[in-house]
Every structure is written in structure tokens, then in C-alpha cells.
């Protein structure tokens, strides 16, 4: 088994008229990895996935999926991928079994294996006993799991899931992520996009995307520890507004923001929490206690986006 990355993108760019949806994206995803695309709506997540599936032609740059070029060999790429689009896209007027049978035929699943694969997909989706139900009568979570079942009937080595959990209730979302990890254990490479920050924690690696650009890439832990370029502190204080203004002027402070009833202050490495408290005391500000915290991915994302906006693209 070779160890070449399952997905490689180099300078991948897609423009729609004057709008740049994906802007010089460089990315590598290793085999068997669960990679998350995180970013707000309109950040270019779906466009990137569609480019990688060969559904859109890149304006410039290149990419390969499972070792095949997405521009020159789109049909071979399609043999090696499973794709779940953002909008539910199975046939509502066909039954669960008929949908599965259709995609098994389209993907040329070897005939003797069809019953077993379909049975697996049905049990994975938790739809035992409802094989004869018209798909449009199913609830959201079941539809999503069935769509996943259809996308993996041919055992693709690479799976693209575009916001598979949007509009699905939390319990069903959690079950869905369990499925994704089951597949990853079997060696499937999975690229999944979401705008739920909490789901990012389920991924091996995260690509933070904003305005078509990749702004950070790493494991959730790496991003939280290193991306901010400093240590995050949580500071309790009685007068939030004035303390915030004073903290922003204090030496060694990279960024400060109100977070619920406390301040989150990012300090340059080498600056201690006590030093900040001491500085605030000289300004006549009463504050404390202060403690170092691990930032959430949301902190990281917000920090990185606001920093980019200050610097300018």
C-alpha cells in the first residue's frame, strides 16, 4: 500500500466572474485521515469539494484525488470517490432499497456483493425494516445516513461529505460522526465540511477556511496550542468595558475580547498573567483572578479571521 496523500491541491483557484470562491488553496490529506473543512457559510468549502470531485473546473491550479488528476482524469476520479452533496440528493420518489440498488448499479458493484453491501448500508443507516419506505417520507437524520450509505456502496477510498449534518438534530449528528470514524478506521480518507465548530473536534486535521483562503491547517490540538502565537488567559473583572480598554493598551497583550462575563486576553509568550494584573493595578483597575486556558477552536477561528482582516488580504 503506497503512502501518497489521498488528496493534493496546489494553488487551487475557482473564480465565478469577478468573485473568487477558492483562492490559491494548497492542501494535502493523508490516507485514512478525517479532514475537516471549517468555515462560515460562503467561505468556499462547497466549491472546494466540488472542485475535488470534478464537478467544477478550476480556474487555475491543480489537484489530484486518489492519485488521479481532477481536470485530466475526472472520470477515473469519480470511480474512486463517494460524494454527499450539501443538498439532499437521493430520489425521494424511490424507496430506500431502490435508491441503494440504483447507486449499486451506477457504481457497478459486483452483482454477488450487492445484497451484502445494501444490507450493510441499511443497517448503518438504522433503516432495517424500512427498506420499502419512500425516501421522501424519512426524517432528516435517516436521509443523511442513507445518503452516506449510497455514497459508500462501491467502497470508495476517498469520501467527500459536504455539510452532511446541517439541519440534523444533535443526537443524529453524533451518530453520523460515529459512522464517519468507523469508515476511517477501515482506511477511508474522509473530507468533511461543516460550519459547526464543535464537530471540528472530531476531525484528525482541520483546514480553517475563510473567504476562499486556507488560513490554518492542523490537528485541533495544534491549532488551539500554536495558531494564536501566544497564551490565552481568562480574566475575571468587575468592570468589563474599562478593563478591556486598559488591557488592550497593556504591554505584551496581543488581543483582548469580552467572553460572556469575563475577558479573554491573549498574551505574548514570556508575558505572565501576574504582570498583566500588576499593570492593570497601576491603572487603578481592580481585576483578578486570572488563569491560563486552552482556546476553543472558535477562539482560534475568530482570532485568525480578525487578524487577517486587520492585515488585509
Amino acid at each position: 500500500m503506497n503512502t501518497a496523500p489521498a488528496v493534493i491541491a496546489q494553488g487551487l483557484t475557482k473564480k465565478f466572474g469577478t468573485f473568487t470562491a477558492v483562492d490559491h488553496l494548497d492542501l494535502e490529506i493523508a490516507k485514512g485521515e478525517v479532514a475537516g473543512f471549517i468555515g462560515p457559510n460562503g467561505a468556499g468549502k462547497s466549491t472546494t469539494i466540488r472542485l475535488l470531485c470534478g464537478l467544477l473546473r478550476p480556474t487555475s491550479g491543480s489537484a489530484s484525488v486518489a492519485g488521479y488528476d481532477i481536470v485530466r482524469q475526472p472520470d477515473i476520479v469519480r470511480l474512486h470517490i463517494g460524494y454527499m452533496s450539501q443538498k439532499f440528493s437521493l430520489y425521494g420518489d424511490l424507496t430506500v432499497h431502490e435508491n441503494l440498488r440504483f447507486f449499486a448499479g451506477i457504481y457497478q458493484v459486483p452483482r454477488p456483493q450487492i445484497p451484502e453491501r445494501i444490507a450493510f448500508a441499511v443497517s448503518m443507516a438504522g433503516l432495517e425494516g424500512r427498506e420499502g419506505a419512500l425516501v421522501r417520507t424519512l426524517a432528516g437524520g435517516w436521509k443523511q445516513r442513507l445518503a452516506l450509505g449510497c455514497a459508500i456502496l462501491h467502497r470508495p477510498p476517498v469520501l467527500f461529505l459536504d455539510e452532511p449534518t446541517s439541519g440534523v438534530e444533535p443526537e443524529a449528528r453524533r451518530r453520523f460522526w460515529d459512522l464517519i470514524h468507523t469508515l476511517a478506521v477501515d482506511g477511508v480518507t474522509i473530507l468533511v465540511s461543516t460550519h459547526y465548530m464543535d464537530e471540528a473536534e472530531y476531525c484528525n486535521r482541520i483546514a480553517l477556511i475563510d473567504a476562499g483562503r486556507l488560513i490554518a491547517l492542523g490537528s485541533p490540538g495544534e491549532l488551539r496550542r500554536h495558531e494564536l502565537g501566544g497564551q490565552l488567559f481568562e480574566l475575571a473583572c468587575p468592570i468589563l468595558g474599562a478593563t478591556l480598554a486598559a488591557a488592550r493598551q497593556a504591554p505584551g497583550v496581543i488581543e483582548a475580547a469580552i467572553f460572556a462575563d469575563k475577558l479573554h486576553v491573549l498574551l505574548r509568550a514570556g508575558t505572565s498573567g501576574e504582570a498583566l494584573l500588576a499593570h492593570l493595578a497601576t491603572q487603578g483597575m481592580e481585576a483578578g483572578p486570572i488563569r491560563a486556558i486552552l482556546p476553543s477552536l472558535e477562539d482560534v477561528f475568530v482570532q485568525l479571521v480578525s487578524r487577517r482582516q486587520k492585515v488585509g488580504p
Partner: peptide
């Protein structure tokens, strides 16, 4: 109905 997006992601010619 949006089913085309799924269909064209398959190897069908």
C-alpha cells in the same frame, strides 16, 4: 430536485 449533483459525481457517462 438536486439529484443531478449526486448523479454527475458518479462514473456515469
Amino acid at each position: 430536485r438536486g439529484t443531478m449533483e449526486q448523479l454527475i459525481s458518479t462514473p456515469v457517462t
